[in-house]
Each structure stands twice: as structure tokens, then as C-alpha cells.
């Protein structure tokens, strides 16, 4: 198998980003929820008294991380759920499929266009929260936040969760016949991935660096498997007609 073309993946990515830029509605819906997520944890932490017990502080910090990890789940799935069915509705999918682009290149281009905004927003908000709390937070809260395990978890989990929700959204989009259904189903179907990370945020698993790395490893395995499944769904015939190709077992001979 020859290697994938970075130029084609980039072409898809650039096209998707241009479309986001031109569609303010997409940008606003991308940003509104994360901004709300920004307000809630900061308020919670700032309202913690300096004498709050450690258990309470840890619980508050855990809930902050859960919110931060919701962003890379929710933002990409909303975008990716539209990626195939939206293009099919607009009539733009077929011309793309008549070009030499491979299905893996199309999948990766569209996936990156969903993953990058989700991860970027997640990192940005995380940086803002950490900065604000570092500047104005109580020392015991700052100490609980600035733990290596949480930093590793945020850095690793955000892209992995974003990838998972992107695969789910894309798979549903490729099989769906309605954009709204695809987006609703996609959001619901991507939430179970949070269960893995919730084990850490709710202190079921002790939030240490090794545990974060193990959980990240599990997510990597899930993501790779999902990528393979989604790539198969990007069969041209399936995308055009909604059904898989059927070839006769033994084509009849023809006089030439």
C-alpha cells in the first residue's frame, strides 16, 4: 500500500477551516459552551474557603477536569456529525469522491478539522483556568490543581477523547440520512468515552501519572480500532447510495 498524501489531507483541512471561518454560526456554537464551562469552575474554586478540607478541594478540582474533558467530546462530535451527511445534502460529496482522494485521506482530513478545534479550545480554557487560579486562587487550591497527574491527563486525554468523539460522529454521519439525527446521536454515543476518564476525576482511580498514562493507552487502542471501522464506512458506493457494493460471484462471460 502506498503512503497517504499529506497534500490531500491538508486540502480537506484547509477547506473545512475556511468553511468554519465563513460560517459564524459554527464558530459561535463552538465557543459558547466552553465559555460557560470556564465560568462555572472558576466561580466554584473562588468560593472555596481557604480552610476547606482537602477532600472538598480535590472533588472541586476533579469536577473542573471533567468539564475540561467534556469540551473535546462535545465540540468535535457536533462538527463531525455534519461532515458527511451535510456534504451529501449540499451535493458537494460526489464531486469530491470523483477525484483521486483516498477514503483514508478524506477521513483524516475531516477528522483533523473536528479534532483540532476541540483540542485547541480545551487546552486554551485549561490554560486560562490554571492561570487565573494561579494568580488569584488560595494556595491549597493551587497546590491541588498543579499536580503532574492532572496536567498529563489533560494533555493526553483531550486529543484522545476528541478523536473518539470524531470517529463516532463521522460514523453516524456516514450512515445517517438526516443532519439533526446525526448530531443528536453523535453526542449521545460519544459520552461513554468520558466514563474512562471519570474514574480518575471522581477519584475511583487514584489520579497519578501512571494511571493517567494507562487510561490514555486504553483510549489509544479504542481510537485506532474506531479509525479502522470508520475508514471502512467511507466506501464510495456506501457514501453515494447508502448501501455497500454487491458484485456477482461469477460474472457471466461476454463475447468481445
Amino acid at each position: 500500500m502506498t503512503s497517504l498524501s499529506g497534500a490531500r489531507i491538508r486540502a480537506v483541512l484547509v477547506k473545512e477551516f475556511r468553511q468554519y471561518r465563513r460560517n459564524k454560526f459554527i464558530l459561535y456554537t463552538m465557543v459558547v459552551l466552553p465559555v460557560l464551562f470556564l465560568v462555572a469552575p472558576i466561580t466554584t474554586i473562588l468560593n472555596l474557603p481557604s480552610t476547606a478540607p482537602e477532600v472538598r478541594v480535590r472533588a472541586a478540582v476533579g469536577s473542573i477536569f471533567l468539564l475540561m474533558l467534556l469540551i473535546p467530546v462535545i465540540v468535535p462530535v457536533a462538527i463531525s456529525a455534519y461532515s458527511v451527511i451535510g456534504e451529501r445534502d449540499q451535493g458537494t460529496l460526489e464531486p469530491v469522491l470523483t477525484t483521486p482522494i483516498r477514503r483514508e485521506e478524506l477521513v483524516l482530513g475531516k477528522a483533523l478539522a473536528s479534532i483540532i478545534p476541540g483540542v485547541a479550545l480545551s487546552y486554551l480554557l485549561f490554560a486560562v483556568i490554571m492561570t487565573v487560579l494561579r494568580v488569584v486562587g488560595h494556595p491549597n487550591v493551587v497546590h491541588a490543581l498543579w499536580q503532574g497527574s492532572w496536567l498529563v491527563a489533560e494533555v493526553l486525554f483531550a486529543p484522545l477523547l476528541a478523536a473518539w468523539s470524531t470517529w463516532i460522529g463521522t460514523a453516524i454521519s456516514a450512515r445517517s440520512s438526516d443532519v439533526r439525527v446525526a448530531q443528536q446521536l453523535g453526542t449521545l454515543a460519544s459520552l461513554p468515552a468520558l466514563a474512562v476518564t471519570s474514574l480518575m476525576t471522581f477519584q475511583v482511580l487514584s489520579p497519578t501519572v501512571p494511571v493517567a498514562l494507562i487510561v490514555a493507552g486504553v483510549l489509544v487502542v479504542i481510537d485506532v480500532a474506531a479509525l479502522r471501522v470508520v475508514s471502512r464506512l467511507f466506501d464510495r458506493e456506501r457514501l453515494i447510495t447508502g448501501a455497500r457494493a454487491t458484485r456477482a460471484a461469477a460474472p457471466p462471460p461476454h463475447d468481445s
Binding site: A11, R18, Q19, Q90, T92, P100
Partner: peptide, 30 residues
């Protein structure tokens, strides 16, 4: 790579400019 297809509906991205649409397809042909 050797053919081109013009579908019944031209299938253009409405929010992108004419040039941007063509740039996208030129990218797909590398």
C-alpha cells in the same frame, strides 16, 4: 486522476469563493 466528472448539480461550496473552491480541488489532484 485521468478523468473529470461534472455532476448534474455543480456541487460547489457556497460560502467559499470561486477560487477557493478550485484551490480545494487542485489540492485533491496534488
Amino acid at each position: 486522476q485521468r478523468i473529470a466528472v461534472m455532476t448534474e448539480s455543480p456541487g460547489l461550496y457556497g460560502r467559499l469563493s470561486v477560487r477557493e473552491n478550485l484551490e480545494f480541488f487542485a489540492g485533491l489532484y496534488q
